[in-house]
Design a protein around this nucleic acid. Structure first.
Lengths: 253, 253
DNA sequence: ACCTGAACACCGTTCAAGT
DNA sequence: ACCTGAACACCGTTCAAGT
């Protein structure tokens, strides 16, 4: 294996290494499986396993090459035989953590209900693995697990009457909203009554001349949880998608 | 000033420093303005100015205490007189960069058109400052500039017929979507034809048995830009909001 | 009261040297 | 062919010492 080198092999004429997560990078991955398929000791899977465990137990700050190596009982330098750099490791790790993206809801329901079910499942998965959510950037959407999720969404939305392009845009929007809402609430534990109290105090003490509505409705606003926010946005998106199907022209206004 | 110390002064009984960006942290900020109001040389504003310039010109990786200090012509240690740590600096920086969030659209238009106008403006601002977008986490939503944006959104949505709670949830959802869509497309330059070509190649070369729709519609999917995605999601959200106003009951299903 | 120099304990990454 | 030890050039943060 790796006997003849095709012109686009990344080890040859590598004027610019593609950034991990790019389409070019994902394409290049499959041309060099030999680098990862080692029969001895350390495997890429083992590296990603300990990395994932580290991320879940000790958080994103502890996800260092040194800690991963320690968890595996090897040197940091050894990791670089399986991964080009840390960014690449993160890209692979995040895609691997996205395998739930394509699980299928039970029962025989409306496309919108299926989408809502999957969206909630995905969000709950990210909430259980906040480290993954904070590492999620756009470029991971091209990995195998992300693509499985895209395939599933396309089935749903094309089945509902969307064109392929609109279906893809809708699926992306939904994914963006889910990931964004988890990230956007990472530091804010909505279930923590202390946090809610502080928010109420903050809203109340603002300048009523500049921020009248915030001061006026301080108590109500402080009670809105990230769950509430998510449900409202999800409902709005799906309702909007339904309207877009019935009248696709409203995309152009 | 700072003569009598109220029981919640963070310098006293500081068993746990609040994390920057938390409601508790924003509240505490106003109790110690003396630390920041120095009449000599270095000011917090100057620190944030050079930090912002650094972020815009050289990106998030170059936003180090050393580089900021160098830009100011002082030692790294001096920065810690104006900022407790780097996280705090980032929180202040991001809120400052969010001042556009509250600019008002021209003309006398529909609430939905106003919201769309502001959303596009906000997105374009973030696209011009990708460093800011990548630093945006949820906890910055409580800063003065963010709150000005919330105030403006509340005006819009309450004026349209939402309850304060629903208005807040809707505004948050919209902000989440905007920020998420910028972040989610940070590495992927949709205007780059190279990237689009690679995506097409990637989609085409997937396993047609596992990902039939992706392979089948590869060319169409590769052409969907992040602009398209954003517009579809924005339209869906606003359409959904309109439906929610007309029939608030559909929030509970 | 303010700022500095120098150190501390960390990073990611590289590479000659071992086996 | 594989892994290691040791180094390199960076981080954020602290603190005694200067002025």
């Amino acid at each position: 294996m790796a006997s003849e080198l095709p012109p686009h092999d990344p080890r040859k004429n590598q004027r610019a290494e593609p950034r991990p997560g790019t389409a070019a990078w994902w394409l290049a991955q499959e041309n060099e499986p030999a680098r990862r398929r080692r029969r001895r000791s350390l495997t890429l899977d083992a590296v990603l396993d300990t990395a994932m465990a580290l991320l879940d137990t000790r958080g994103v700050a502890a996800l260092t090459m040194r800690n991963i190596a320690e968890g595996l009982g090897c040197t940091q330098a050894s990791l670089y035989r399986h991964v080009r750099n840390r960014e690449e490791l993160v890209t692979l790790l995040v895609d691997r953590a996205l395998s739930v993206a394509s699980s299928v809801p039970p029962g025989d329901t409306d496309w919108a209900e299926k989408a809502a079910w999957s969206a909630r499942l995905f969000r709950e998965h990210l909430l259980r693995h906040p480290g993954v959510a904070s590492l999620l950037r756009g470029t991971e959407r091209l990995g195998p697990n992300s693509l499985a999720g895209v395939q599933y969404s396309l089935e749903l939305f094309i089945g509902a009457g969307f064109s392929p392009r609109l279906a893809y845009a809708a699926a992306s929007s939904l994914a963006t909203f889910i990931i964004g809402s988890v990230n956007f609430n990472l530091g804010l534990d909505s279930s923590d009554p202390e946090e809610s109290r502080h928010r109420r105090l903050l809203y109340r003490s603002r300048d009523a001349a500049a921020l009248p509505l915030i001061v006026q409705h301080a108590d109500a606003l402080a009670e809105v949880s990230s769950d509430d926010e998510f449900e409202v946005g999800l409902k709005a998106l799906l309702t909007g998608f339904r309207a877009l199907i019935q009248n696709p022209d409203i995309t152009h206004d």
